[in-house]
Protein backbone atom coordinates (compact mmCIF):
# COMPACT_ATOMS: atom_id res chain seq x y z
CA UNK A 1 0.00 0.00 0.00
CA UNK A 2 1.67 3.30 -1.04
CA UNK A 3 2.77 5.59 1.79
CA UNK A 4 0.79 8.76 2.49
CA UNK A 5 -2.74 9.69 1.31
CA UNK A 6 -4.09 7.77 -1.64
CA UNK A 7 -3.87 9.93 -4.85
CA UNK A 8 -7.14 11.23 -6.32
CA UNK A 9 -6.45 9.41 -9.59
CA UNK A 10 -6.01 5.86 -10.77
CA UNK A 11 -3.25 4.67 -13.09
CA UNK A 12 -4.25 1.95 -15.56
CA UNK A 13 -1.46 0.44 -17.63
CA UNK A 14 -0.43 2.40 -20.71
CA UNK A 15 -1.30 -0.56 -22.93
CA UNK A 16 -4.71 -1.21 -21.36
CA UNK A 17 -7.56 -1.11 -23.89
CA UNK A 18 -9.20 1.85 -22.12
CA UNK A 19 -5.94 3.81 -22.29
CA UNK A 20 -5.38 3.00 -25.94
CA UNK A 21 -8.98 3.97 -26.76
CA UNK A 22 -8.48 7.40 -25.20
CA UNK A 23 -5.14 7.82 -27.02
CA UNK A 24 -6.68 6.94 -30.39
CA UNK A 25 -9.50 9.46 -29.88
CA UNK A 26 -6.83 12.06 -29.10
CA UNK A 27 -4.80 11.26 -32.22
CA UNK A 28 -7.95 11.45 -34.37
CA UNK A 29 -8.65 14.84 -32.75
CA UNK A 30 -5.29 16.33 -33.72
CA UNK A 31 -5.43 14.93 -37.26
CA UNK A 32 -8.81 16.60 -37.75
CA UNK A 33 -7.44 19.93 -36.57
CA UNK A 34 -3.96 20.07 -37.98
CA UNK A 35 -3.83 22.98 -40.39
CA UNK A 36 -0.69 21.99 -42.26
CA UNK A 37 1.82 19.22 -42.67
CA UNK A 38 1.13 15.53 -42.30
CA UNK A 39 -1.14 13.23 -40.35
CA UNK A 40 0.36 11.71 -37.21
CA UNK A 41 -0.16 8.22 -35.85
CA UNK A 42 0.14 6.83 -32.32
CA UNK A 43 3.57 5.42 -31.56
CA UNK A 44 3.70 5.07 -27.78
CA UNK A 45 1.62 5.97 -24.75
CA UNK A 46 4.01 7.54 -22.24
CA UNK A 47 1.80 8.04 -19.21
CA UNK A 48 -1.82 7.94 -18.07
CA UNK A 49 -3.75 9.15 -15.06
CA UNK A 50 -7.51 8.87 -14.73
CA UNK A 51 -9.21 11.46 -12.51
CA UNK A 52 -12.75 11.12 -11.22
CA UNK A 53 -14.95 13.99 -12.40
CA UNK A 54 -17.84 15.47 -10.45
CA UNK A 55 -20.67 14.72 -10.77
CA UNK A 56 -20.05 11.95 -13.32
CA UNK A 57 -17.42 10.67 -15.71
CA UNK A 58 -13.66 10.56 -15.66
CA UNK A 59 -10.87 12.63 -17.22
CA UNK A 60 -7.95 10.79 -18.83
CA UNK A 61 -4.73 12.78 -18.52
CA UNK A 62 -2.66 11.06 -21.19
CA UNK A 63 0.76 11.77 -22.71
CA UNK A 64 1.60 10.16 -26.04
CA UNK A 65 4.33 10.05 -28.65
CA UNK A 66 3.30 10.14 -32.30
CA UNK A 67 5.10 9.72 -35.60
CA UNK A 68 4.47 11.63 -38.80
CA UNK A 69 2.94 9.69 -41.67
CA UNK A 70 3.36 10.35 -45.39
CA UNK A 71 -0.28 11.46 -45.75
CA UNK A 72 -0.88 15.17 -45.95
CA UNK A 73 -3.49 16.46 -43.47
CA UNK A 74 -5.83 17.27 -46.40
CA UNK A 75 -5.52 13.74 -47.79
CA UNK A 76 -8.77 11.82 -47.11
CA UNK A 77 -6.88 8.48 -46.96
CA UNK A 78 -7.79 6.72 -43.69
CA UNK A 79 -4.96 7.00 -41.14
CA UNK A 80 -4.69 3.19 -41.00
CA UNK A 81 -3.63 3.26 -44.67
CA UNK A 82 -1.02 5.98 -44.22
CA UNK A 83 2.61 4.84 -44.07
CA UNK A 84 4.75 6.02 -41.19
CA UNK A 85 7.64 8.20 -42.36
CA UNK A 86 10.73 6.01 -41.95
CA UNK A 87 13.91 7.08 -40.18
CA UNK A 88 15.88 7.13 -43.43
CA UNK A 89 13.31 9.59 -44.86
CA UNK A 90 14.02 11.87 -41.86
CA UNK A 91 11.20 10.98 -39.46
CA UNK A 92 9.30 13.55 -37.39
CA UNK A 93 8.05 12.79 -33.87
CA UNK A 94 5.16 14.40 -32.01
CA UNK A 95 4.81 14.72 -28.24
CA UNK A 96 1.29 15.43 -27.03
CA UNK A 97 -0.53 15.94 -23.73
CA UNK A 98 -4.29 15.53 -23.66
CA UNK A 99 -7.22 15.67 -21.30
CA UNK A 100 -9.91 13.33 -22.58
CA UNK A 101 -13.34 13.25 -20.95
CA UNK A 102 -15.11 9.90 -20.68
CA UNK A 103 -18.78 10.30 -19.91
CA UNK A 104 -21.64 7.90 -20.58
CA UNK A 105 -19.18 5.74 -22.52
CA UNK A 106 -18.33 8.62 -24.89
CA UNK A 107 -14.80 10.02 -25.24
CA UNK A 108 -14.19 13.67 -26.14
CA UNK A 109 -11.03 15.78 -26.01
CA UNK A 110 -11.05 18.62 -23.48
CA UNK A 111 -7.55 19.96 -24.19
CA UNK A 112 -4.59 19.15 -26.41
CA UNK A 113 -1.01 20.39 -26.41
CA UNK A 114 1.40 19.06 -29.02
CA UNK A 115 4.97 19.69 -30.14
CA UNK A 116 6.71 18.02 -33.03
CA UNK A 117 10.39 17.73 -33.87
CA UNK A 118 12.37 16.07 -36.66
CA UNK A 119 14.87 13.35 -35.92
CA UNK A 120 18.49 14.46 -35.55
CA UNK A 121 20.78 14.46 -38.61
CA UNK A 122 23.09 12.06 -36.75
CA UNK A 123 20.28 9.56 -36.25
CA UNK A 124 19.27 9.75 -39.93
CA UNK A 125 22.84 9.27 -41.13
CA UNK A 126 23.35 6.47 -38.61
CA UNK A 127 20.72 4.41 -40.48
CA UNK A 128 21.48 5.87 -43.93
CA UNK A 129 24.77 7.79 -44.39
CA UNK A 130 23.78 9.31 -47.75
CA UNK A 131 20.11 10.00 -47.15
CA UNK A 132 18.87 13.57 -47.66
CA UNK A 133 17.94 15.70 -44.66
CA UNK A 134 15.00 18.02 -44.21
CA UNK A 135 15.59 21.50 -45.61
CA UNK A 136 14.15 24.79 -44.32
CA UNK A 137 10.82 25.37 -46.10
CA UNK A 138 11.63 29.06 -46.65
CA UNK A 139 15.02 28.36 -48.25
CA UNK A 140 15.10 30.22 -51.58
CA UNK A 141 16.14 27.04 -53.44
CA UNK A 142 13.12 25.23 -51.98
CA UNK A 143 10.72 28.03 -52.87
CA UNK A 144 12.12 28.19 -56.42
CA UNK A 145 11.88 24.41 -56.82
CA UNK A 146 8.21 24.49 -55.77
CA UNK A 147 7.43 27.39 -58.13
CA UNK A 148 9.03 25.57 -61.07
CA UNK A 149 7.33 22.27 -60.20
CA UNK A 150 3.88 23.87 -59.83
CA UNK A 151 4.29 25.80 -63.09
CA UNK A 152 5.29 22.57 -64.84
CA UNK A 153 2.25 20.79 -63.41
CA UNK A 154 -0.12 23.54 -64.54
CA UNK A 155 1.52 23.71 -67.97
CA UNK A 156 0.86 20.02 -68.66
CA UNK A 157 -2.63 19.95 -67.12
CA UNK A 158 -5.99 19.84 -68.90
CA UNK A 159 -7.79 20.56 -65.65
CA UNK A 160 -8.06 23.38 -63.15
CA UNK A 161 -5.23 25.78 -62.53
CA UNK A 162 -3.68 24.72 -59.22
CA UNK A 163 -2.69 27.31 -56.65
CA UNK A 164 -0.06 26.72 -53.96
CA UNK A 165 -1.50 26.21 -50.44
CA UNK A 166 1.66 25.29 -48.50
CA UNK A 167 5.16 23.95 -48.93
CA UNK A 168 4.97 20.84 -46.74
CA UNK A 169 8.40 19.27 -46.93
CA UNK A 170 11.74 19.66 -48.70
CA UNK A 171 15.07 17.85 -48.82
CA UNK A 172 18.37 18.57 -50.53
CA UNK A 173 19.66 15.45 -52.28
CA UNK A 174 23.24 15.09 -51.01
CA UNK A 175 24.74 13.36 -54.03
CA UNK A 176 23.33 15.34 -56.92
CA UNK A 177 24.81 18.82 -56.67
CA UNK A 178 21.67 20.90 -56.85
CA UNK A 179 18.73 18.55 -56.58
CA UNK A 180 15.80 19.53 -54.38
CA UNK A 181 13.00 17.13 -53.46
CA UNK A 182 9.79 18.98 -52.57
CA UNK A 183 6.26 18.14 -51.42
CA UNK A 184 3.56 20.79 -51.41
CA UNK A 185 -0.20 21.16 -51.05
CA UNK A 186 -2.32 22.82 -53.72
CA UNK A 187 -5.94 23.81 -54.28
CA UNK A 188 -7.98 23.87 -57.48
CA UNK A 189 -9.18 27.24 -58.78
CA UNK A 190 -11.98 28.32 -61.12
CA UNK A 191 -9.51 28.81 -64.01
CA UNK A 192 -8.57 26.27 -66.68
CA UNK A 193 -4.83 25.70 -66.38
CA UNK A 194 -3.89 26.07 -70.06
CA UNK A 195 -5.91 29.31 -70.49
CA UNK A 196 -4.42 31.19 -67.54
CA UNK A 197 -2.71 34.45 -68.42
CA UNK A 198 -2.99 36.18 -65.04
CA UNK A 199 -3.12 33.75 -62.05
CA UNK A 200 -4.33 36.61 -59.84
CA UNK A 201 -7.71 36.38 -61.59
CA UNK A 202 -8.18 32.78 -60.44
CA UNK A 203 -10.16 32.05 -57.28
CA UNK A 204 -10.28 28.93 -55.12
CA UNK A 205 -13.41 26.86 -55.70
CA UNK A 206 -16.30 27.53 -53.33
CA UNK A 207 -16.25 23.84 -52.34
CA UNK A 208 -12.53 23.52 -51.73
CA UNK A 209 -10.67 20.86 -53.67
CA UNK A 210 -7.19 20.23 -52.36
CA UNK A 211 -4.37 18.26 -53.85
CA UNK A 212 -0.84 17.22 -53.09
CA UNK A 213 2.26 17.30 -55.28
CA UNK A 214 5.67 15.66 -55.09
CA UNK A 215 8.48 16.94 -57.28
CA UNK A 216 12.21 16.80 -57.89
CA UNK A 217 14.00 19.85 -59.19
CA UNK A 218 17.54 19.63 -60.64
CA UNK A 219 19.73 22.56 -61.60
CA UNK A 220 21.92 21.15 -64.41
CA UNK A 221 25.66 21.81 -64.19
CA UNK A 222 25.93 23.39 -67.65
CA UNK A 223 22.89 25.61 -66.91
CA UNK A 224 19.20 24.88 -67.36
CA UNK A 225 16.77 23.12 -65.05
CA UNK A 226 15.02 19.75 -64.96
CA UNK A 227 11.85 19.08 -63.00
CA UNK A 228 9.59 16.06 -62.52
CA UNK A 229 6.31 16.50 -60.65
CA UNK A 230 3.18 14.49 -59.93
CA UNK A 231 0.08 16.03 -58.42
CA UNK A 232 -2.93 14.20 -57.00
CA UNK A 233 -6.23 16.01 -56.51
CA UNK A 234 -8.38 14.88 -53.59
CA UNK A 235 -12.17 14.58 -53.88
CA UNK A 236 -13.87 17.74 -52.66
CA UNK A 237 -14.46 17.32 -48.94
CA UNK A 238 -17.82 18.44 -47.60
CA UNK A 239 -17.17 20.76 -44.69
CA UNK A 240 -18.15 18.84 -41.55
CA UNK A 241 -18.72 21.13 -38.60
CA UNK A 242 -17.01 19.54 -35.62
CA UNK A 243 -19.42 19.10 -32.69
CA UNK A 244 -17.53 21.03 -30.04
CA UNK A 245 -17.37 19.00 -26.79
CA UNK A 246 -19.20 20.66 -23.92
CA UNK A 247 -16.08 22.46 -22.70
CA UNK A 248 -16.48 22.71 -18.90
CA UNK A 249 -15.36 25.94 -17.28
CA UNK A 250 -11.67 25.18 -16.81
CA UNK A 251 -11.42 26.48 -13.30
CA UNK A 252 -14.52 24.60 -12.07
CA UNK A 253 -13.25 21.56 -13.94
CA UNK A 254 -9.86 21.89 -12.31
CA UNK A 255 -11.38 22.21 -8.84
CA UNK A 256 -13.51 19.15 -9.46
CA UNK A 257 -10.37 17.22 -10.33
CA UNK A 258 -8.29 18.72 -7.56
CA UNK A 259 -5.96 20.01 -10.29
CA UNK A 260 -4.23 23.36 -10.47
CA UNK A 261 -6.81 25.57 -12.27
CA UNK A 262 -5.03 25.80 -15.61
CA UNK A 263 -7.12 27.78 -18.06
CA UNK A 264 -7.13 25.53 -21.10
CA UNK A 265 -7.81 27.38 -24.34
CA UNK A 266 -10.86 26.36 -26.35
CA UNK A 267 -9.79 23.43 -28.56
CA UNK A 268 -8.37 25.49 -31.39
CA UNK A 269 -7.15 24.17 -34.73
CA UNK A 270 -3.65 22.91 -34.07
CA UNK A 271 -0.81 24.55 -36.02
Amino acid sequence: VPHGPMPGYREPACDDPETEQAALVAVDYINKRLLRGYKHTLNQIDSIRVWPRQPTGEVYEVEIDTLETTCHVRDPTPLANCSVRQMKEHAVEGDCDFHVLKQDGQLSVLSAKCDSSPDSAEDVHRVCPNCPLLAPLNDSRVVHAVEVALAASNAQSNGSYLQLVEISRAQFAPLQAAAVYVEFAVAATDCVAKDVTDPATCNLLAEKQYGFCRGTFIEKVGGGEDVTVTCTLFPTQPVILQPQPEAPTPVAEADALGLEPVVQPEPEPLE
Binding site: V1, P2, E11, P12, A13, C14, D15, T19, E20, T41, L42, N43, Q44, I45, D46, S47, I48, D65, L67, V84, M87, A91, E93, D119, S120, D123
Partner: peptide, 29 residues
Protein backbone atom coordinates in the same frame (compact mmCIF):
# COMPACT_ATOMS: atom_id res chain seq x y z
CA UNK B 1 3.08 -10.83 2.09
CA UNK B 2 3.03 -7.04 1.52
CA UNK B 3 5.79 -5.61 -0.72
CA UNK B 4 6.48 -2.06 -1.90
CA UNK B 5 5.24 -1.63 -5.48
CA UNK B 6 7.96 -2.12 -8.09
CA UNK B 7 10.18 -4.23 -5.83
CA UNK B 8 9.82 -7.96 -6.49
CA UNK B 9 9.40 -9.90 -3.21
CA UNK B 10 12.34 -12.17 -2.39
CA UNK B 11 11.65 -15.51 -3.99
CA UNK B 12 8.45 -13.97 -5.31
CA UNK B 13 7.18 -13.95 -8.88
CA UNK B 14 9.31 -12.53 -11.75
CA UNK B 15 10.06 -8.82 -12.36
CA UNK B 16 7.16 -6.41 -11.89
CA UNK B 17 5.84 -5.30 -15.30
CA UNK B 18 5.88 -1.51 -15.29
CA UNK B 19 2.50 -0.19 -16.48
CA UNK B 20 4.05 2.77 -18.39
CA UNK B 21 5.41 3.79 -20.80
CA UNK B 22 3.55 1.43 -23.12
CA UNK B 23 4.73 -0.53 -26.13
CA UNK B 24 6.43 1.18 -29.08
CA UNK B 25 4.34 0.60 -32.20
CA UNK B 26 6.97 1.66 -34.79
CA UNK B 27 10.31 3.03 -33.63
CA UNK B 28 11.68 5.66 -31.24
CA UNK B 29 13.56 8.69 -32.52
Amino acid sequence: KGVLPGIPAAGGPGPVIRPCPGRIRYFKI
